[in-house]
Structures are given as C-alpha cells and as structure tokens.
C-alpha cells in the first residue's frame, strides 16, 4: 500500500517535471533569445524588452487586444447567459439546438469562418465602422463553444427553475434574478468562460490577420520580420501578462465568501447534533 503510494508520488513528480519542461523550455528559450546582445560574445541586454513601448504600432495593438478582450467577454456574457437561462426555463426543447449552434464554430475551420465573415466586415467597414474593435463580434463566435460548455456545467449544477421562481415570487424582476441569484451561483462557471475568452482573444492571429486588422499577435508577427528580439520579448511578455491576468481572475473569483468562513466556525453549528 505504502509502496504503491510512493510509486504514484514519483509518477506524479515525473509527469509534473515533463509537462513543466514541455511548457517552460520554449518560453525559457524565447526569453534567452530576447536578452541576447548583438555579436558573438556580446553581454546580455534588456534592450528588446525596454524598447517594446517605443514601437507605437505595437503599443496600439496591445491596447486594442486588451480592449477586444474586455468587449468580447462582456458581449459573450450578455449574449450567452440570459439565452441559456431562458432556454432552460421556457424552451427546454431548444437546448439541443442551442448547444449545436454554440458548438458549431469549433467544427468549422477558421479560414472557412473568415470567408463567410469577409463580406460582412466589408459591409461594416464601408457603412458602419472599420475600427479594430468590430473584431469582437467575430471573436464572440470564436469563444462561443468554450464559453457555452463552461456555463452549461455551471447552470446544470443549480436548480435554475426553482431558484428563479422562488426569487420571482419574492418580488425580484428578471434583471434582479439574473444579477442577484443566477450570476452569484454560477460565478465560477462564468469566470472559467471569461478565462477562456481572454486567453483565446489574446492569442488570436488568423481572424485579425486575414481581416486586415492589427492586434497583438499580428503586430508581433510583423515586428518579427523587422526586429526579432523585440518580437520575441513581446510574445513572452504577452504570455506572462495572460498568465498573471488569468491567475488574478482565478484567485479573485474563487475566493470563499467571508460569511461562509464565519459560519463554518460558528460554535453552535460545530456542536449542534440536532438536524431536523
């Protein structure tokens, strides 16, 4: 028994090291490359890192990508959450259809999606706006499958119908039901959906490139031709930024409610044996 557990511990450690190396070695190599000086025996330099913000196109692309993250996330939640709740409450027969539609982008290659989107973007550019932020509409489609799965798991874990009806009978309007009852109870699922959306948008290249917009990844690719060092340092920085952002969202969102912690230490609860 003990030997089995020890073997499992070793296996776990080996897998951790292997996967860690798989992810970290390329990043380490990128970091090493981005700090190389010019010339064979040149000392290490931070020039590629300190000059990131001196490229105005790159700065604009970073800002645009961050804005796209925010807008896409907001649009995704506004579009998906009420729809999914409504379908569960009033149109349960349509659940399969909605699920199919939401998962569809996963099965369609990006290039095919873009071929379909080009005329729409052409029309929008001429008649409405050619701002890069319009990309968020396409990105909502892109993140739909991941966000749907995440939220579906969250909604399945609670009794949406009963909780909604209880809140309605207590006088809550529909927006209040969403904001005060549904969202707090599927907070983790929404956070997961947001995490996936942010990660996807920050790393997106194909849509932006083929629709002729310059987001972070496109800017990095363009810069790679002119200055490989800055291109790589920006790529590492964007990876680190995404990592830190995801950690922050994850830790902030999954914090235990303070009142729950208080209740867990409630002496009456701990000592009470009576449960009627």
């Amino acid at each position: 028994m003990k030997a089995g557990r020890a073997r499992f511990q070793v296996f776990r450690a080996v897998m951790l090291v292997l996967f860690g190396a798989f992810f970290l070695v390329p990043i380490g190599a990128m970091f090493e490359f981005s700090t190389r000086g010019t010339g064979i025996a040149a000392p290490r330099t931070w020039a590629a890192w300190t000059s990131i913000l001196t490229y105005p196109d790159l700065t604009n692309a970073i800002v645009a990508s961050l804005e796209l993250c925010v807008i896409t996330s907001i649009l995704m939640v506004i579009l998906l959450l009420p729809t999914m709740v409504w379908v569960r409450l009033r149109l349960p027969r349509l659940r399969g259809v909605i699920e199919f539609i939401c998962l569809l982008p996963l099965t369609i290659p990006a290039i095919v999606l873009i071929v379909g989107l080009v005329p729409i973007y052409y029309f929008m550019a001429l008649n409405i706006s050619d701002n890069i932020l319009t990309l968020s509409l396409a990105y909502v489609i892109l993140v739909l499958p991941y966000a749907y799965r995440s939220m579906d798991v969250g909604l399945a874990a609670i009794d949406v119908k009963t909780l909604t009806e209880a809140a309605r009978s207590l006088g809550a309007s529909w927006p209040t039901v969403m904001a005060r009852i549904i969202v707090p109870n599927i907070r983790v699922a929404i956070l997961n959906a947001l995490l996936l959306s942010v990660a996807l948008v920050l790393g997106e290249f194909t849509f932006a490139n083929l629709l002729s917009y310059v987001n972070l990844q496109v800017a990095i690719a363009q810069l790679g031709r002119a200055n490989a060092g800055v291109s790589i340092s920006t790529a590492v920085a964007s990876l680190l930024f995404a990592f830190v952002l995801l950690m922050v969202i994850s830790f902030v969102g999954r914090r235990r409610p303070p009142s729950l912690a208080a209740a867990a230490t409630d002496p009456q609860y701990l000592t009470s044996g009576q449960r009627t």
Binding site: L163, A166, R168, S169, N185, P257
Partner: peptide, 18 residues
C-alpha cells in the same frame, strides 16, 4: 409573479445557496 405578493414554498429545496 413578482408583483402578486404571494409567498411560496417549493417541493425542491429552493434556498439561495449563496
């Protein structure tokens, strides 16, 4: 339903978990 002033207890447990 939210303006009827009706109190309701459901068959399923309906307390708001949070």
């Amino acid at each position: 339903a939210n303006r009827r002033n009706v109190g309701m207890v459901f068959q399923a447990y309906s307390l708001f978990p949070h």
